[in-house]
Computed example of a mutant assay.
Amino acid sequence: MARPDPQNEIWDKHLHPHLRLLLPSSSPPIHLEARLYLPLPLPESINKHINILGEYSTVPKKLEDLDAGLRDGLRDMGVERVVVASHPWGRLGGSMLDPVITSHLITAIYHPYHSHTTDPSTIEGANPDPDSTAVISYNVRGVGLSGGSQPWLGTGSDPNDLAEIEKIGVGLLGDSVKEAFRFGYSWGSLLTILAPFPTASHIPLKKTLLVSPPITVFKGITLLSSKKFPAALKDHHIHLSKPVWVVYGTKDEFTGASTYTHFADEQGKEVVKSIQVDDADHLWRRDEGQKLREVIRDWLDASGENEQMDNKLA
């Protein structure tokens, strides 16, 4: 048997959550299953507490069961940025284990140069400062170990749940956190936009990236909602004072490229930074997945000066 590659062992650690949690939803006593990814190397105060190597049989801990030493260790890590990730529709099998989150997002942040391709032109890019970034993903109600259930029409409590997970994640990591980012994939894009903004003035929501939002489907989901997706998107832009990034593929099975283009034109460049990836489908497989990672890295590193620029990735 071949000896394991030490570099692959390091890579494996990036792919696994460092802490599995059951966190209160916006309407306790319902709890939501969550995963907190932390930058490496972990300090010893954290290392001795948590399942680094992906021991999936480990029972998630409730927030109130985290001991004082672990809480202190998390706050002492100096994490400055928290990315909250929202997954596809649970009614169609979506969960926080979707590869767009567990592979593409996590890879882009913590291991930006890992790739299955040997073409250097596809893996060059700026490092999005993984040393100061944490990611929290979670299952919406009725998915995995999360309690409750999702409605068939509308979004129910899901947007408020996202805001609650965001608040708890930031709270666990302490006063070093300076900014919150939101990442929504597919149906999760809707929650990302509808969720209330952080209330703590010292933790501003700085950036939002929507991956393959099925905007035509959103019309039906929000039919009875008080706020529709386009209106919420404009409010989101006003809050950010910069465009919301939207990336999509030309072969998306749910939304045609022309629909995305028309939607972006209607919203305007000041509201939406639209990025089209040729040949990518809704699942972001094969080389198109690597292109998505490039977009994620660009989004993490983007300054206000290049927010307005439209892109197309062939």
Results as ranks from 00 to 15, higher is better:
223 L>M: 11
186 S>V: 06
145 L>I: 00
186 S>K: 09
163 A>P: 05
174 G>Q: 02
189 S>F: 04
125 G>T: 08
163 A>K: 02
203 I>F: 11
149 S>M: 03
202 H>W: 09
197 F>N: 13
168 I>F: 08
122 T>D: 07
146 S>C: 10
185 Y>F: 15
165 I>W: 02
130 P>L: 05
175 D>H: 12
216 T>N: 12
189 S>A: 12
173 L>P: 09
183 F>Y: 15
121 S>L: 15
165 I>C: 10
223 L>W: 09
182 R>C: 03
138 Y>H: 02
219 K>W: 01
185 Y>S: 09
221 I>M: 09
120 P>C: 00
172 L>M: 10
158 D>Q: 12
156 G>A: 03
169 G>P: 01
147 G>P: 06
148 G>T: 07
210 L>W: 13
209 L>P: 09
157 S>E: 14
139 N>E: 02
221 I>D: 07
219 K>P: 01
146 S>N: 07
124 E>D: 13
195 A>R: 09
153 L>M: 05
121 S>G: 10
173 L>H: 09
146 S>R: 07
183 F>T: 11
218 F>Y: 11
119 D>T: 07
162 L>H: 02
190 L>F: 03
134 A>C: 01
200 A>N: 15
188 G>Q: 14
143 V>D: 02
224 L>I: 04
127 N>A: 07
136 I>E: 04
148 G>A: 10
123 I>Q: 11
141 R>S: 11
202 H>D: 13
175 D>G: 05
183 F>Q: 10
226 S>T: 10
202 H>E: 15
172 L>F: 01
184 G>Q: 00
123 I>G: 01
184 G>R: 10
220 G>A: 02
120 P>S: 03
205 L>F: 11
217 V>S: 06
128 P>G: 11
187 W>E: 04
195 A>Q: 09
126 A>M: 00
148 G>S: 03
168 I>V: 11
165 I>Q: 07
209 L>G: 08
131 D>G: 02
199 T>K: 14
144 G>H: 05
167 K>E: 07
